[in-house]
Design a protein around this nucleic acid. Structure first.
Lengths: 362, 362
DNA sequence: GCTGATTGGGAAAGCGCGTTCCCACTGCTT
DNA sequence: AAGCAGTGGGAACGCGCTTTCCCAATCAGC
């Protein structure tokens, strides 16, 4: 990637590089009209494109935003990415994408890579984990982020703070009321359902999943229901599918006693898992909501046409991405005393959405 | 974004920047073991992270791959993005994401931005358009790409060449046999369906859509069927939905005459549209496949649990992204005479997948 | 023991641009 | 007419790193 340089343009226009720079970028000093025209003409006759790397070097700011997701093909992350993308455009920045598969160790790599590219800010979208096996990774990630922030970088994390992070300057957490919403979902469901509840959750230690599980249990308790069994499985479609197979067996077994088969209401901690669970139940010949009700979480757009329509909690995913990104867009960190700056109460809020998949009428 | 510099590391280690550079990066010259250790230790005691921008400037290569999609939240693009991401990792590069909404004008902006960042290569994933209104945009895009390639950039386009592009050095098209596969789908469907066919297509001039429409018609002809009506609508879920409403009315009207209501087989040119169409039919009280059969294209992963299972054509989306990216990864363009280099016959192939949604048995 | 070939390190010149500092000039005031 | 602020342009330095070139020291070979 070579291209014509500012110096070449300047030479062609018969001015100094300094002048050329002043006219081709928003400098405080505006050269005279005639000279400006000459430079501009020279520039596009040469097809001049400023070298952003050089500009970045000189101005020490790259115009880059780093986005870290577990998997860009997961519609949850894709939706957030859209919001990030959108906000980045507002800020006239480009987004740099890193897919990590979920491990904090890989996330640390990504942060380091972003730091190397001198990204102005970093948005971390994936769920945090506090599993034992991730402890070292988390510590390293926290250290890396800390260093990044100390160097003036801004970071926004969706959901929970990075485990072990010390909330340095420029570090921002966009809180998502997973627990509260899951509670509301539970009470909502409890109103129309007298059977038992089961939760299909992600691996223990995945904070997003844990929050939703906890919130749901609390909601059940508030509604005077007994706590739900929790099945732990992978935080994706196939995890949901496996849980579904287990549940199908359980339902079958219960039904075999030819007492009134106790109908189950299943809460899968995200929509994708819910779909997997539903698929498994169906493959075992069970019907939803006749034989079991099922609810998810997120309200993934692509899944809204699923039938029976999935009860879930709508999360403004795109807004979350947008807000997270904006929260990093303020003045460069350590600017002045305005500590409260950027502390806008990013009021993420969701909405329990009850649909066909949990209707009591079988 | 400041950070400690190579010079600081060198000073701490008591060596020259040149030496520090040699040990901290894969240079041809390996400094002595003891000195290397000293430098390395100094480096991580300072938390040194090389400045990729400066490196890029010096080496004139940025380690960046630009990816252009219409909408990252569309599962089609998200899947391709995953493949691109994957291949980028193989090449130790990062991906820069641009979402354009589909217009060539915006795509041109994106290319320019990538060029400014001196991206090593660019992957364009969105469908090309040859609508009149896009002619100017296409021309500009082609010019921009051409310039980019002349400067040594490599570009890969998924599907069709950019309209008007002159196939410069370093320009690569990953062909997708849309037409052929749509033809196979048509003949496959024709075997089990005696009713009429209708196509729900994107706007005329969207090349991907046009190919699929054309291929499907050809397939029908080969099967001795009369050509299908074509409804033109938006290339997304809501376009499909609107077409679905139209079709529902048509079906209703036909059924009203209480002659045997002629069952329709609908081919929507992509899965997302198909889902939209199905949703509309359902909202009008029609059942699939009882009242109408429906097929899509792409075999989007997230949609595979849709019921009735959608007949479609499986496309290896992730591979497509991977292959496109790899095709740009060879030696820098203009390297030597190996013209055929990178011309590996990226044999993208799909598979017709007939499922429940087009079963004749109602 | 001396010359010629290596080796291993440093000095310095860029890479392309932003920016500060300086200078020549104009237009005004006292 | 001299003094002044104000304007518009250029020279030069620095951003952080790579790489070429050069030099001192070591080693082999006669």
């Amino acid at each position: 990637m070579a291209a014509s340089t500012l110096t070449e343009v300047a030479r062609l226009a018969g001015v100094s590089p300094a002048t050329a720079s002043r006219v081709l970028n928003g400098s405080a000093r505006k050269p005279g009209k005639d000279i400006a025209d000459r430079v501009r003409q020279a520039a596009d006759s040469l097809g001049y494109i400023p070298n952003a790397q050089a500009q970045g070097l000189a101005k020490s700011s790259s115009g880059l935003i780093g986005l870290i997701v577990h998997d860009i093909a997961d519609p949850y992350f894709a939706a957030i990415a859209r919001g990030v993308q959108d906000a980045a455009r507002e800020q006239h920045k480009m987004v740099l994408l890193a897919t990590t598969g979920g491990g904090p160790a890989e996330e640390k790599e990504a942060v380091a890579a972003f730091a190397a590219r001198r990204a102005d800010s970093i948005v971390i979208a994936g769920s945090r984990s506090c599993r034992d096996e991730d402890r070292d990774g988390n510590a390293e990630l926290a250290a890396e982020l800390d260093r990044y922030c100390r160097n003036g970088g801004r970071v926004a994390v969706v959901g929970h703070p990075v485990v072990g992070a010390t909330a340095p300057e420029g570090y921002h957490v966009v809180k998502v009321p997973n627990q509260e919403l899951a509670g509301q979902l539970a009470t909502g469901l409890a109103e129309g359902w007298d059977g038992d509840f089961v939760i299909v959750g992600g691996p223990e230690g995945l904070l997003t999943s844990d929050d939703r599980v906890r919130g749901f249990q609390e909601g059940l308790e508030r509604a005077g229901r007994r706590p739900a069994d929790v099945i732990r499985t992978a935080f994706n479609r196939s995890g949901g599918y496996e849980a579904g197979l287990q549940l199908a067996a359980r339902i079958r077994a219960a039904g075999a006693g030819d007492a009134a088969p106790p109908r189950l209401c299943i809460f899968a901690v995200n929509d994708v898992m819910a779909i997997g669970t539903a698929a498994a139940l169906r493959s075992e010949g069970l019907r939803i909501p006749r034989d079991a009700a099922i609810a998810g979480f997120d309200d993934i757009e692509t899944l809204r046409d699923f039938r029976p329509a999935l009860s879930t909690v709508r999360l403004p995913l795109e807004d979350i991405g947008r807000i997270a990104t904006r929260s990093t867009g303020g003045k460069p960190a350590g600017d002045d005393g305005g500590e409260a700056e950027g502390a806008a109460p990013d009021d993420i809020t969701g909405e329990v959405t009850l649909r066909r998949s949990t209707e009591a009428a079988a």
